[in-house]
């Protein structure tokens, strides 16, 4: 009984990790950048929901929509301003820039909204009771939305022209250019999709933990990053699997060992993966081309 409920909890958090991990993985796949500012997109998305719902008094759906519109735009803007000028320069410069963007977003939020955490109203109240079982609507909605988003992403990547262009650019940027693919558009599009998924994840996260603060994206972002590495960074199915595995592992640790160890376990997984299977569960080991 405990096992089942911990498992469901795990799938619940895991689906949020998976959505965020997808953004890391897709961006890495296409420009080989660990976008450390990705976690902070979650924070911006959450503040957008809070601002819309609490400050502006919009209905919940409108606040959510606001957040899901803002984040892709922000993602594209960050790419244009911060990353694009560095294309072709050393990867370490890009990485440091990403960390800089992360600090910038956090401190902007601190400036505008202060460091005091703000509370959100319950977005999806209520729970479902079937016999002895109870399941909150939040959990049901979170898992359902995440699965639907992943299915849509799969369709996008495998069926649409833009999705295939993303795969082509991520496999071989030069060859993709020779096909007539506009690499700049493709990269912008990837950032938009990744940030959009992060916004959805943020909304789902706020349903369970209705509080926003300037640094809320850091830990969530890091864990999702571990999920992306576990799955094989650059791999879309890998990010999904990695997210669920991390969520379940964390939840079982909380249930059976100690809740204080849950975060440590996630990073232990990262260390083990890096030692034992650096390419991740579903990643392909591609030696660097010289």
């Amino acid at each position: 009984m405990i096992f089942i409920s911990q498992l469901i909890n795990g799938v619940h958090v895991g689906s949020i990790y998976a959505l965020v991990a997808l953004g890391y993985s897709m961006v890495y796949g296409i420009i080989k950048l660990i976008n450390f500012a990705h976690g902070d997109i979650i924070m911006v998305a959450s503040y957008a929901v809070w601002y819309g719902a609490v400050r502006m008094g919009l209905p919940t759906w409108a606040a959510i929509l606001l957040s899901i519109v803002i984040c892709p735009l922000l993602g594209m803007l960050i790419e244009k301003i911060a990353y694009k000028p560095l294309r072709g320069s050393a990867r370490i410069s890009l990485l440091i820039t990403a960390i800089g963007v992360s600090f910038l977003l956090q401190n902007l939020a601190r400036m505008i909204f202060t460091a005091t955490p703000q509370s959100l109203p319950a977005l999806i109240p209520g729970k479902l009771s079937v016999g002895p079982w109870t399941l909150s609507y939040t959990t049901l909605v979170t898992i359902a939305v995440a699965v639907v988003m992943m299915l849509c992403l799969n369709l996008l990547v495998s069926r649409t022209k833009m999705g295939k262009a993303m795969r082509a650019v991520s496999e071989d940027t030069e060859a993709a250019q020779l096909m007539g693919i506009n690499v700049n558009h493709t990269i912008s599009f990837t950032f938009a999709i990744g940030s959009g998924l992060a916004a959805v994840a943020a909304v789902l996260y706020c349903c369970s933990y209705p509080q926003v603060s300037p640094t809320m994206g850091s830990l969530l972002g890091l864990k999702a990053f571990v999920a992306a590495v576990l799955g094989g960074i650059g791999s879309i199915p890998g990010a999904m699997v990695g997210g669920f595995v991390i969520g379940i592992a964390e939840s079982l640790t909380k249930g059976y060992i100690h809740s204080g160890l849950a975060d440590a376990l996630v990073f232990l997984i990262l260390i083990v993966v890096l030692i034992v299977r650096p390419a991740g569960l579903m990643g392909v080991h591609r030696p660097e081309k010289v």
């Binding site: 022209k161 295939k164 262009a165 795969r167 082509a168 496999e171 071989d172 030069e174 060859a175 993709a176 020779l178 096909m179 007539g180 693919i181 392909v284």
Partner: peptide
């Protein structure tokens, strides 16, 4: 003006058909 690059540079992880579709991108 199309360019068949050195070492072929086809998209190894995509299907043959998808490679051709990419060629028709324009």
């Amino acid at each position: 003006l199309s360019h068949v690059p050195e070492g072929r540079r086809i998209f190894l992880q995509m299907s043959v058909l998808e490679n051709l579709q990419m060629g028709a991108y324009t």
